[in-house]
Design a protein around this nucleic acid. Structure first.
Lengths: 268, 268
DNA sequence: CTTGACATTGACGCAGCGTCAGGGTCCGAC
DNA sequence: GTCGGACCCTGACGCTGCGTCAATGTCAAG
């Protein structure tokens, strides 16, 4: 008869595993010899190999126990199930391979592809890396909070960036980078911003887009202001010209309750 | 800023997992708002997705922690490693699919293919299922204890079974099945057995095969005797004719110390 | 003011064994 | 004999990666 290590060795499992199977009732305890050692017959080998085969295929031991007691029909059905599971696991693993490859390539994976495209497009237009970085972070937040509106916002932003005038404005803003709040170029930029806003308002353009929530807008504006020293001054200048906010820019209340206007909204 | 459930939801993990990552130092604890709630910025999203991607690819969290702190070069190397692992895991899963398919087809998987072939060949010759069963069990034990001698033994057995005279003898023995120990056919069968033994001895055939260990032989003989009611009588008759044992059959000592003879050995 | 959906910490539970600890047993060599 | 090394035994704790209470606090809406 076989000792436990012979059995385990031949079946390709560890001795500890065999004992575990005994403890959990998966494999019946065999006879003991006079010194208390377990002694196994051939049937144990067959059973153990069945257990191992199922277990290695990812079947939980509790299920294995059921299957060992099942009739051939149930067993066949279960095997079909297991095989399906193995197939989906294989395709999952393939997906994971692709994902880690993308990770290795430096993609964050935190953004939907259209946003990646958009950022690449902006990079192509020569936007500063720091500008792109806060743009990226903003879109991560937007995508996290409003995943199903990202497509819509993205379309608006794409249109803006493809519009030469607006793109120039953005590029000029991005170029300010570290300049001080008293930079002489700021008033002119505020004028250009307002011009586009008025034009958009006249066409009721962007009116179909729900603005982002006030809290999110505040947060994004906050990052904007913290990142660029000139930002507070720009907002001041815009305020002087009758517009308030940035992400959810809109007409200042005095001139009427001022419907929110999302056209430039997602600039951050 | 994001709450923990927004973060978790967008990154595709559970809230519990995020807290676990904090507890184990994988993801830094973020600032808390005035009521003690965690508030996350965009960077946490990026990090969490990295963690998830690696973790889902089967990287242990302890390793993930190292990788998050690694420089791009080490990271790339690690990703290569991970990818290799994923590939081998995929092929493992494919192997497991094949194995459970064989299980479902009724194979025991406890025997090397040459033994399966041998048993199929015997079935083809019309051997009784009960006979095949104990034959199978015996070979399982032999394979378990002497895996590297199975090929050799198998070759001998194959030769025996392809030898028409010996095969006839075996078939006749198998046909006795449930007959009683006083069956009149037994003496003739004993004579035929001895005839082949003498012939084999004369040619020193099978002398190149090491016999199996005495304990294993005893065990196999035991199963043989327990399974067939006529077996003890047959052994008696052989004893009368100067041969003792079955698995390791050999000349009875009185006629000389009698070198063991393995020719018919593995018949059980 | 309640209600229900969130948040917090802390604790135990789970599978499937690995890995000691603290023994006993067997077998071959000396 | 008896010594060493390789087995065997039981029992217990450890590990990963969270799930799942429990007990309590907060927030937003009705």
């Amino acid at each position: 008869m076989l000792t436990i290590s012979q059995l385990a060795g031949y079946a390709g499992v560890t001795v500890r595993a065999v004992r575990h199977y005994h403890a959990t009732g998966l494999l019946p305890e065999p006879e003991r010899d006079r010194s208390g050692y377990r002694r196994y017959g051939p049937h144990a080998v067959v059973e153990l190999i069945r257990i191992r085969t199922l277990s290695e295929a990812g079947v939980p031991l509790s299920r294995v126990r059921e299957l060992l007691a099942a009739d051939p029909e149930q067993f066949a059905a279960a095997v079909g199930e297991i095989d399906r599971r193995l197939r989906t696991e294989i395709s999952e693993l393939r997906r994971h391979r692709k994902r880690i490859a993308r990770l290795a390539a430096g993609e964050s994976l935190a953004l939907p592809p259209e946003v990646i495209d958009y950022l690449d497009r902006m990079r192509g237009f020569g936007f500063d890396e720091r500008f792109l970085e806060i743009e990226r972070d903003s879109w991560i937040l937007i995508a996290a909070q409003l995943p199903d509106r990202v497509g819509l916002y993205m379309a608006i932003k794409r249109a803006q960036v493809e519009h030469e005038g607006i793109r120039r404005l953005y590029l000029d803003l991005a170029e300010l980078a570290d300049c001080t709040p008293d930079d002489p170029r700021l008033p002119a930029l505020a004028d250009r911003t307002v011009a586009f806003l008025e034009a958009a308002a006249a066409q009721a353009q962007g009116a179909d887009a729900e603005p982002v929530g006030d809290d999110l807008a505040r947060l994004l504006d906050g990052t904007f202001v913290e990142t660029f020293a000139w930002a507070p001054r720009l907002l001041e200048l815009l305020e002087e010209r009758g517009w308030t906010g940035w992400t959810n820019i809109r007409r200042t209340p005095p001139t009427g309750a001022g419907r929110r206007h999302g056209a430039l909204a997602a600039a951050r």
